[in-house]
């Protein structure tokens, strides 16, 4: 009985939390479908006016394209870097807690501090405002997240699989291609998605060291908002929410698939 009460309480808590956190986000969605010049909730008449405005404006589209490319590159780099940490952990000896904490540092360091530091570092080098700098910065922010994913994945993969493949005559490129990477497939996708999100909605670094003429989408939104409030922003926000929700959904599906997979594997191991 007690656990059932707790269960109900738990759900109530979750619902309240989600409502509290998500209400301001969700309220953007109906506003974006309004047709007034000011933010108005609830909208009096539905229209796609603001979507037309945004999608017809090259400045928004160019920013979106830039953000997309930066996020893809940053996610790719962070995934490879995290994967390498995972492989080291699996093949060359376990990575202990102290080293893990050091590797997690970018996660706890305030972005503003990192951004300020990067700014004064990149300025004399003339690298300020280059997409490459921002890609590298975003990748660094995401590495702790991808690393954690790969460390866990490596822990769940028996290192003896490598030894077994080795004894069967396979060399390391084949072992990596045929054994390790396929078994880490879910983690690779998960790491890429989480790194993608990290870069996609990052504002601080983008403002400090990112491109200026065509800024990233969050950066442009921020500067746009400092000048005026326009329902166009809510349309962009809605689309951003859409992308984020889609990725979140993918992550949940991956999680379920992954758990089923590893449960089946455990069962197969006869435990």
């Amino acid at each position: 009985m007690k656990s059932r009460h707790l269960n109900i309480l738990g759900w109530v808590y979750c619902c309240l939390l989600i409502a509290f956190l998500l209400f301001p986000i969700i309220i953007m969605v109906p506003i974006s479908f309004g047709d007034t010049d000011t933010l108005h909730f609830p909208p009096e008449r539905l229209s796609l006016r603001w979507y037309e405005t945004v999608l017809g404006d090259d400045r928004w589209l160019d920013s979106a394209k830039l953000s997309l490319w930066i996020a893809i590159w940053a996610a790719g780099l962070a995934t490879v870097a995290g994967l390498l940490v995972g492989l080291v952990h699996m093949r060359l000896g376990r990575i202990g807690v102290p080293l893990r904490i050091v590797l997690m540092m970018p996660l706890v360091a305030p972005n503003v501090v990192i951004a300020t530091g990067l700014f004064s570092l990149l300025l004399p080098l003339g690298l300020l405002g280059s997409p490459t700098s921002l890609i590298l910065g975003h990748a660094c922010l995401a590495v702790p997240l991808t690393m954690v994913i790969f460390l866990n994945a490596a822990d769940s993969l028996d290192p003896l699989l490598w030894t077994a493949a080795d004894s069967l005559g396979a060399r390391w490129p084949r072992i990596l291609r045929e054994i390790v990477l396929p078994n880490l497939g879910i983690s690779i996708v998960a790491a890429f998605l989480i790194a993608f999100i990290t870069s996609w909605d990052e504002v601080t670094l983008a403002i400090f060291v990112g491109p200026i003429v065509v800024p990233t989408l969050p950066s442009r939104m921020f500067s746009f908002l400092t000048e005026m409030i326009d329902p166009a922003v809510t349309a962009i926000a809605t689309m951003l929410i859409g992308v984020t929700a889609l990725i979140g959904l993918l992550m949940i599906i991956l999680n379920i698939v992954g758990r089923k997979y590893s449960a089946a594997r455990r069962q197969g191991a006869g435990q």
């Binding site: 003896l160 699989l161 030894t163 077994a164 004894s167 069967l168 005559g169 045929e178 054994i179 078994n183």
Partner: peptide
């Protein structure tokens, strides 16, 4: 190890989880 032509069976189950029984045996 990969050049010794030695078959090995371990205490833990070391079948490749991403390959079918057939493909596991076909791997070497």
């Amino acid at each position: 190890a990969n050049a010794r032509n030695i078959g090995m069976v371990f205490q833990r189950y070391t079948l490749f989880p991403n390959k079918s029984v057939f493909d596991n045996v076909a791997f070497p």
